[in-house]
């Protein structure tokens, strides 16, 4: 493990920002800290960076306990949520700052900055000031500035939060490529599950100061360990009385069941293939979602959300249909 947190506790004025947080990160991985706002993910990142100090527990980077080592000596690069570019310095000086502080020779700095400007595709903008750049460009500069001193660990706090939705998707792919090209171990904080799934090799889901689950995006999607994770990752319907569903009247002790829309199949009267089994349901609502239809189906007193391809015959509200359910996630909480 390159980065390791062991039983970290942190409180702010009685609020538990970190409540026994432990996890490890492999060298070279790109990891997402995912959770709703207030779940303590940014606090974890800031403690790894040395900007906040844990009340107890150990933070280990590259086999060294770094609790008492200042952030500047931990070999990390940090990208702030609003980039925190130095507004009175040019793009060039911003990127050069970390190297200047380390008293690197001028020509070496110049080469390194040029190389980074080329990497982020802003070769001609070295002389500009941050307020003359677009949001996406600022983000790239912040990224280059963090990378300039060759950190072993890159930390990014909500790197896409301040960018409008359209550019965000582009930048995600860009950042993912850049990080794999540079090959630096990276941790980024996000509240956007789609972003985490798309960018990260591994996701750490946090909630209320605790780690809920750690795993690859696919693993977390298919095998959510807690009700919270099941709700937070992917779209889902939560039902409390799953025993009323046919074939699911198991006697397991559980209080809630989570159902993914993709695991529900609908058979309308106009469909080519039909089934004999399944449950009887009624279409309550249909709505167009761009690439697919979202259908609300009522089975007894349970309302489920299902998806339907656009090529399939359309369903109308009030139509009696057959429903099959492939999988339910059960939780006893």
């Amino acid at each position: 493990m390159y980065v390791e947190l062991k039983h970290i506790y942190k409180t702010f004025d009685g609020f538990h920002a970190s409540d026994d947080v432990s996890f490890g990160i492999q060298k070279g991985n790109l990891v997402a800290l995912l959770g709703p706002s207030g779940s303590g993910k940014t606090t974890i990142l800031r403690m790894i960076a040395g900007l906040d100090v844990p009340n107890s527990g150990e933070i280990i980077i590259d086999n060294v306990v770094v609790n008492d080592i200042p952030g500047s000596k931990r070999g990390i690069g940090f990208v702030f949520q609003n980039y925190a570019l130095f507004r009175y310095m040019t793009v060039f000086d911003n990127i050069a700052f970390g190297l200047e502080v380390q008293k690197v020779k001028k020509p070496v700095i110049k080469n390194r900055v040029k190389e980074l400007l080329k990497l982020i595709g802003l070769e001609d903008l070295g002389g500009r000031y941050p307020n003359q750049l677009s949001g996406g460009q600022r983000q790239r500069v912040a990224f280059a500035r963090a990378l300039a001193p060759n950190p072993h660990l890159l930390l990014l706090d909500e790197p896409f939060a301040a960018i409008d939705a359209k550019v965000r998707k582009e930048l995600r792919t860009w950042l993912r490529e850049m990080i794999s090209q540079v090959g630096v171990t990276s941790i980024f904080v996000t509240h956007d599950q789609e972003e985490a799934i798309e960018v990260a090799d591994e996701i750490i889901v946090t909630n209320k100061g605790k780690v809920e689950q750690i795993g690859t995006p696919i693993d977390i999607y298919h095998n959510p360990k807690t009700l919270f994770v099941a709700q937070f990752i992917g779209q889902s319907t939560i039902i409390n009385n799953h025993r009323t569903l046919k074939d699911f009247n198991v006697n397991e002790d559980c209080s809630a069941a989570v159902l993914r829309p993709r695991n529900i199949k609908l058979f309308g009267k106009n469909d080519a293939d039909s089934i004999t089994g399944g449950q009887n349901g009624t279409v309550v609502d249909t709505s167009f979602r761009g690439d697919y239809m979202e259908i609300k189906v009522k089975i007894d007193d349970i309302v489920l959300i299902a998806f339907r391809d656009l090529e399939e015959p359309s369903l109308s509200v009030g139509e009696k249909i057959k429903v099959t359910i492939k999988q339910l996630h059960l939780f006893s909480e």
């Binding site: 960076a49 040395g50 900007l51 952030g71 500047s72 000596k73 990390i76 940090f78 702030f80 949520q81 609003n82 925190a84 570019l85 130095f86 507004r87 700052f97 970390g98 502080v101 380390q102 500035r145 001193p149």
Partner: peptide, 10 residues
């Protein structure tokens, strides 16, 4: 933020 960023760079 800006000051923290600079401090982190040493």
């Amino acid at each position: 933020d800006e000051e923290e960023a600079a401090a982190l760079m040493g």
